[in-house]
Design a binder for these strands. Structure first.
Lengths: 190, 190
DNA sequence: GTCTATATATCGATAGAC
DNA sequence: GTCTATCGATATATAGAC
């Protein structure tokens, strides 16, 4: 690893919390420079402009920091595996940075569709594929459409995170995780 | 209706497409004034500042333009009713403004939790309540938890809209609406 | 009440010293 | 290569003419 990539890393690490907290428009290059401990000119020597820095940062987050880590393959009794999987997904939002990252992707998806698709192909799609494959390899669950059912499973959980955590529904329309997971498993693997 | 509220209406109508298209930060008061056909000073005579205008606009959208309209109560055979309901929800995103509105709510939910909660209580929660009630009044579907199941139903559809339309997943990981709806009804009302 | 003109601040990006 | 200083553009918000 060369010295220049170290500096780039330093910049990206400084920029990360700024963009996560304030979003693209409300993050200034001055703040990034200050947070990274370098001058503004150094920023522009490593990244072409604000857009380039942001793009590099989102790629880094989608490919490293928030990359889906489902190391071990799914094996075992459906009710156990699906319950374990549901709680693992629900647990990801215990990281506040992850919520901010999701918010950022949605917020910028209108003007930066390529970043949204990068998120999908690196995070959402792998999860769906693993789950789809599990359904296919366990015909005892007897599903008519493994892929569509995988989307229902993931969708119910993502929607729960969206409403409860991201949109602050916890306080006005609370729902216990256990009730959602129980009903989800009843619906799919009863 | 007084003359002043007419003018306020005119401003809000001009501001609507600007905020929907560009988001809060990238919408300038100059552009709003131009779009509404009034001077900038008139803006500030009807609204205290940019924040006040934006808040009033989101309230208007949540209470009027995008308010959930489920006039007729849900009645009939579960498979028919649920299918009809699913397609009605999926059809709402044929309005591009609705997608932008959702994006805006999510984008600003970090710094404006009150607006996110306004969206939930005026749009998301009523939908869940109506569906929950339908489940409760149709015990032949035999669900262990009506409220949790309603969240699964709505969640699967919202997640579909989120990934396919908002995050532009249509092009890289397409899924037919019919497959999702079929599997959803199989999972819940089989 | 409404418009033109402007005050003040901050942004992204750059030029020049070392 | 890195920093300090600054340019030009644009933002919110306001003051004064009519």
């Amino acid at each position: 690893m060369t010295r220049s990539t170290d500096k780039a890393e330093q910049i990206l690490q400084g920029a990360l919390p700024e963009f996560l907290k304030h979003g693209y428009a409300c993050t200034s290059m001055d703040k990034v420079a200050q947070a990274a401990g370098v001058s503004k000119q150094t920023l522009y020597s490593y990244f072409s402009d604000k857009e380039g820095l942001f793009t590099a940062l989102v790629k880094r987050m989608a490919c490293q920091k928030f990359k889906l880590v489902w190391s071990q393959p799914l094996e075992g009794k459906p009710e156990i595996v699906l319950r374990e999987l549901a709680y693992r997904l629900l647990g990801e939002v215990d990281d506040p940075d992850y919520l901010c990252f999701l918010r950022l992707i949605v917020a910028e998806s209108g003007t930066r569709p390529d970043l949204a698709q990068l998120f999908l192909s690196n995070i959402a799609q792998p999860a769906l594929k693993i789950l789809t494959r599990y359904f296919q390899e366990h015909p005892e669950i007897n599903l008519p459409d493994s892929e569509a059912t995988a989307r229902i499973f993931v969708g119910a959980i993502v929607h729960f995170i969206l409403t409860q955590e991201m949109l602050h529904g916890k306080e006005i329309m609370p729902m216990e995780k256990k009730r959602l997971v129980d009903s989800l498993i009843y619906a799919i693997a009863r």
